[in-house]
């Protein structure tokens, strides 16, 4: 192993763990909140089973507004809110707040898109068989859209990694922050390149896994 990596081994591991913590929190927020929000966006559209112009417009606007922020600005803008929830606006835990919010907005949009690909007839068949809203969602929509949902999550996770790299501004740490502080600011270019390589490998693994899983569960 290159000497520079050995020298900073402890810091590098710490940075990797911070990245995993931030991205992990983003994934959890995307799945637990982004998925329901995206489903609601889809179901409240005109002609869908929960058609509701009001709810759709509000959700749509909120998701758009969050996604229009340059992420760095969103992080700064959310500082008071973060302080309210976590008690501090600095550190890895605090960094998960803006990350989770962008994760929800990001994934919910991709969920909505995947669900729009489900043939209208499948939902009609479900309704004609007497399915409730919940059954339509879990026994038909998600089953039919599952490979799109997985691919969307894969794309999202890769974006979350990218977002997590700027969390150094609020002391969130992570691989990106480490690369900037040591590699760029202390002119250790080789260290920066090693960090980039770690990120590339990480993204490759995630994309490969996502593509494979989505292909295996797609029987259409």
């Amino acid at each position: 192993m290159p000497a520079v990596l050995v020298q900073y081994e402890a810091e590098i591991w710490k940075a990797i763990i911070e990245t995993f913590a931030m991205v992990g929190a983003s994934i959890a927020a995307a799945v637990l909140i982004g998925l329901p929000v995206g489903t609601l966006l889809f179901l409240c559209r005109k002609g869908k089973i929960l058609e509701n112009q009001m709810v759709f417009s509000v959700l749509n606007l909120v998701v758009n507004i969050i996604r229009s922020f340059p992420f760095l600005l969103l992080v700064v803008f959310l500082i008071p809110f973060t302080r309210l929830i976590i008690g501090t606006a600095i550190g890895t835990a605090a960094a998960t707040v803006p990350l989770s919010i962008i994760a929800i907005a990001h994934y919910s949009r991709l969920v909505e898109q995947s669900l729009l690909d489900v043939p209208k007839g499948v939902m009609e068949a479900a309704i004609s068989m007497g399915a409730s809203v919940k059954e339509v969602i879990f026994k038909f929509l998600y089953v039919e859209a599952r490979s799109g949902l997985v691919l969307g999550l894969t794309t999202s996770i890769i974006s979350f990694i990218s977002y997590s790299t700027i969390m150094g501004v609020v002391g969130g740490g992570g691989i990106g922050d480490f690369a900037i502080r040591y590699g760029y600011q202390q002119f250790k270019t080789d260290l920066m390149i090693y960090m980039i390589i770690i990120m590339v490998i990480l993204v490759q693994i995630i994309q490969f896994t996502g593509t494979t899983v989505s292909r295996l569960i797609d029987k259409r």
Partner: peptide, 16 residues
């Protein structure tokens, strides 16, 4: 609706 069956031109089966 459970005692009213329905079939369609495009079958509308769940492909997955």
């Amino acid at each position: 609706r459970q005692s009213i069956g329905m079939i369609f031109q495009h079958f509308n089966l769940v492909a997955n």
